[in-house]
């Protein structure tokens, strides 16, 4: 016989947890005191640096500790200044990179860890940006709404040079998985120089999104960015207006469609007064649909009316 099973009660579990927490707290306090007491030492105190790493891997948001590490790194850099390539220095820096990796696994949204990583790589005699690039791609597939990762990707791309086509495909891939993502759309806007050729593609993509879910704001913001481009001809704008009118027929209560129509009629009315009338009607409808922003629409409405007035 294996003996009887006895299930731990929730009380017992709670007690165990409390005990654990107390233990952690004691360790944390000890480490912080130790670092504070030895911070100015040259050469640095090895025990403190080790303790510091232990605390950070549990809680990567203690920026005092990251600053301590940077001071130590600067010390190391100073020491190896004259020699050509110092293996000891490289392995020291690699160690720092590994630490941030550990911290990021635990908390992928830790500002300090991302910063420390980039800071180290900038000072690295042989930085492996390509590896960073693969890493960030991997991170983004885990969570493509983590803006830290998108920021980091831009930093890396500045270092290794950009393959526009690959980056566009990457952005399309992320959007296909989830297009409710401001970061992916925004990243795309940093890549695209809109010429007549790709304009068509982008308009199609954004229409796919707004027709799938007109209440999702992220794609509408991208559309507004496209429309801000001078290459969008009036002909294109009218075409799009037609398509949005169709969409509005299917979803008459969606404020985003009306807003987008107003963006379009706004620029079209500069040459054709008939669009200005439409614009005024749409703003009136928006006031009813979205009473929380009533004041804003009234303001727009006034401007639209004035514009007609001045022309007349």
């Amino acid at each position: 016989m294996h003996g009887r099973l006895k299930v731990r009660s929730t009380e017992e579990q709670k007690l165990l947890k409390q005990k654990e927490q107390q233990k952690k707290l004691r360790a944390y306090k000890y480490a912080m005191n130790q670092v504070a007491a030895t911070r100015k030492e040259i050469p640095f105190n090895k025990d403190s640096l080790m303790l510091c790493a232990q605390v950070l891997s549990v809680n990567p948001d203690v920026y005092t500790l990251w600053n301590y590490r940077k001071e130590v790194v600067l010390q190391q850099l100073e020491m190896s200044k004259d020699e050509e390539v110092d293996d000891a220095l490289v392995s020291f820096l690699e160690n720092e990179i590994k630490l941030t990796e550990q911290c990021l696994l635990d908390n992928p949204k830790s500002y300090s860890s991302w910063h420390h990583r980039y800071w180290i790589l900038q000072r690295h005699p042989k930085p492996n940006w390509q590896q960073e690039f693969s890493l960030i791609t991997k991170y983004l597939t885990f969570d493509d709404r983590n803006f830290h990762c998108w920021d980091y990707r831009r930093l890396i791309i500045n270092k290794i040079g950009i393959s526009l086509c690959n980056e566009l495909n990457f952005s399309t891939e992320r959007l296909n998985i989830n297009f409710s993502n401001y970061s992916s759309w925004h990243y795309r806007s940093t890549l695209r120089k809109l010429d007549s050729e790709c304009l068509e593609e982008e308009l199609e993509l954004v229409q796919n999104a707004v027709f799938t879910d007109p209440n999702d704001s992220s794609a509408w913001f991208y559309l507004r960015w496209i429309l801000s481009d001078r290459n969008v001809t009036n002909e294109k704008r009218e075409e799009l207006l037609e398509s949005l009118t169709q969409l509005l027929d299917m979803d008459p209560d969606c404020k985003w469609i009306l807003m987008a129509k107003c963006w379009l009629t706004g620029s079209l009315s500069l040459t054709d007064n008939h669009f200005a009338e439409k614009r005024i009607m749409d703003y009136k409808k928006l006031k009813e649909l979205d009473p929380l922003r009533k004041g804003q629409y009234s303001d727009y409405l006034e401007c639209a009316k004035k514009a007609i007035g001045t022309e007349k």
């Binding site: 959007l175 296909n176 229409q207 796919n208 999104a209 799938t212 879910d213 169709q246 979803d251």
Partner: peptide, 18 residues
């Protein structure tokens, strides 16, 4: 899913909405 509807090239925009 919503993403499938968005990315399926064989479904027209009007069909996506429908």
């Amino acid at each position: 899913s919503r993403s499938d509807v968005f990315s399926n090239p064989k479904v027209s925009v009007i069909e996506k909405r429908m």
